[in-house]
Simulated scan of single mutants.
Amino acid sequence: MNILFYAKGTAALPPHIVLEEIGAPYEVRRVDFAANEQQSSDYLEVNPRGRVPALVTPDGILTEAPAILTYLGQTNPEAGLIPSDPFTLARAQEFNSYVCATVHVAHAHRVRGHRWTDDAAAIESMKSKVAQNMTDCAEMMQNHFLRGEWVLGDNYSICDPYLFLACRWIIADGANIDDFPALRAHYDRMLARPAVAKVLPLHE
């Protein structure tokens, strides 16, 4: 059985949604960032980087949301959440990599500026750019990556919970998601999914 370590407001939300969509038994364990549990010796044995998500699987421990999403999709093919076609799978990886490497980093400049500098003025300067940077990310996701009702077109996939998280960040960071009607419609469709309704309260 898979065990997901998560914390509120983090990239653990998409794997949690996918675990619920799959329907196989799993457990979740909250890591309390306010109590600095991510730096405890017990948790650092799970993830030496002290971050979430981390997924304990029968095959070993995985970290980083794109890797976890891919693993869950490929080990549960009956759920139909990951493409079997190599090119479409590459497109899924392209999107998930963009969220991980660009959108997440842009968002982190508002809430975790201390990762880049100890200068308080520089941290405030970074924060002032976040809304615009997230607006730019929203434009890219709507106009380049979103290929239909779902990220990959007609079929819901491991990419859609990740876009849902990105939209939550867009809203929290002061960008106007209503300027991007395709993203807004996707966000509302995600809110209507039973799996999202079940896990979301644990992440807020």
Results as ranks from 00 to 15, higher is better:
Ala7Val: 07
Ala7Tyr: 04
Lys8Asn: 09
Lys8Val: 08
Gly9Phe: 06
Thr10Ser: 15
Thr10Val: 04
Ala12Met: 02
Pro14Lys: 02
Pro14Arg: 01
Pro15Cys: 09
Pro15Thr: 05
His16Ala: 13
Ile17Trp: 01
Val18Phe: 03
Leu19Cys: 02
Glu20Ala: 03
Glu20Asp: 02
Glu21Asp: 07
Glu21Gly: 01
Ile22Leu: 07
Gly23Pro: 08
Gly23Trp: 04
Gly23Tyr: 02
Ala24Asp: 12
Pro25Thr: 08
Pro25Ser: 05
Pro25Leu: 08
Tyr26Thr: 05
Val28Arg: 09
Val28Leu: 00
Val31Arg: 03
Val31Phe: 05
Asp32Tyr: 11
Asp32Thr: 05
Asp32Phe: 07
Asn36Asp: 11
Asn36Leu: 01
Asn36Gly: 01
Asn36Trp: 00
Asn36Ser: 11
Glu37Ile: 07
Glu37Pro: 09
Glu37Gly: 06
Gln38Ser: 02
Gln38Arg: 01
Gln39Phe: 13
Ser40Tyr: 07
Ser40Asn: 11
Asp42Thr: 15
Asp42Trp: 13
Tyr43Ser: 02
Tyr43Trp: 05
Asn47Tyr: 07
Pro48Arg: 13
Pro48Asp: 08
Gly50Leu: 05
Val52Asp: 05
Pro53Asp: 04
Leu55Trp: 04
Val56Cys: 00
Val56Tyr: 00
Pro58Ile: 12
Pro58Asp: 14
Pro58Leu: 04
Pro58Trp: 08
Asp59Arg: 09
Ile61Gln: 06
Leu62Val: 08
Thr63Lys: 09
Glu64Ala: 12
Ala65Tyr: 00
Ala65Cys: 15
Ala65Trp: 04
Pro66Asn: 02
Ala67Leu: 07
Ile68Tyr: 11
Leu69Pro: 12
Thr70Asp: 02
Tyr71Gly: 02
Leu72Cys: 11
Leu72Gln: 11
Leu72Ser: 12
Gln74Val: 05
Gln74Tyr: 02
Pro77Arg: 13
Pro77Met: 12
Glu78Asp: 15
Glu78Val: 12
Ala79Phe: 08
Ala79Thr: 07
Gly80Ser: 06
Gly80Asp: 04
Pro83Cys: 02
Ser84Thr: 13
Pro86Asn: 14
Pro86Lys: 09
Leu89Ser: 06
Ala90Val: 05
Ala90Cys: 10
Arg91Thr: 06
Gln93Ile: 10
Asn96Pro: 03
Asn96Leu: 15
Asn96Tyr: 04
Tyr98Ile: 10
Tyr98Leu: 08
Val99Trp: 13
Val99Lys: 10
Val99Cys: 14
Cys100Arg: 12
Ala101Val: 12
Ala101Gln: 14
Val103Cys: 09
Val103Gly: 08
His104Cys: 07
His104Ser: 13
Val105Phe: 04
Val105Ala: 09
Val105Trp: 10
His109Val: 11
His109Asn: 14
Val111Phe: 14
Val111Ile: 15
Val111Gln: 00
Arg112His: 15
His114Cys: 00
Arg115Leu: 12
Arg115Val: 13
Thr117Met: 02
Thr117Lys: 03
Asp119Asn: 14
Ala120Val: 14
Ala120Cys: 01
Ala120Lys: 12
Ala122Ser: 11
Glu124Leu: 08
Glu124Met: 11
Ser125Arg: 15
Lys127Arg: 15
Ser128Lys: 12
Ser128Tyr: 08
Lys129Asp: 13
Gln132Cys: 00
Gln132Leu: 10
